[in-house]
Amino acid sequence: MKYLQHTLLSLSLAAFTLGCGTDSNTDPLVPEIVSIEIYDADLNSTIHSIVIDEDQAQLYATVLYDDNSSSTATTQLNWDSNDTAVMNVYNGLLTPAANRGTAAISASFRDKLFTTIDKNVAIMPLSDINITSEQDLNITDDTNTSLCHVDINTTGEYTFQTNGTFEDNKTTLAISSNITWMSSNTSVATVGLSTGVVTVITTGMTDINISVFNDINKTLRMDVNITAI
């Protein structure tokens, strides 16, 4: 009987010892959320965001994990605006409302991570645009009208840029989207519809019409006088 008890005890200790494993990994199996970042279409997550009147803007959210991975979670979050008279938001899509001002846009998930992803979005209408050129052309701007003027005396390509000025008269922003360029006289000069690259062909006059969101319009009157060298 003692022999049987001894055998049982030995077997039990052996089995117990076999069950003792060693840990092969000290990092948790499931990655942890570090933060949720909000950014706009230009991947700008630090300063945000001038939204032009009557337009919509899409915000995106990315979850960052402690294993350095990330994933997009725009539609999984609950988006909220603290002033819906200024701005509405749904699934990250910002839609300006009737009033002007600043609305704090936040996104939350299960009522957590709220403070980490709070962003302010200033809603300001665009008031004016002005035109500059890469070739440093002398562009005169009539502040009383939406007409500006430039003289050109050689053929070739000219690249123009548009800078927007907003209603606070402080904020300016290079406008690279939602802008259209059209030439009134394509025999004198053509222009890329969205690029602002003007190709001067011959002597004459043409109006380059610039429209931002079909709302803010500007005309660049171009007098071309090709002089023989």
């Binding site: 199996l29 990655p31 994933s71 999984q76 998930f109 991570l113």
Partner: peptide, 10 residues
Amino acid sequence: ISLVSEDVKV
């Protein structure tokens, strides 16, 4: 377990 963008099963 929720990772916000997805739920994972263990």
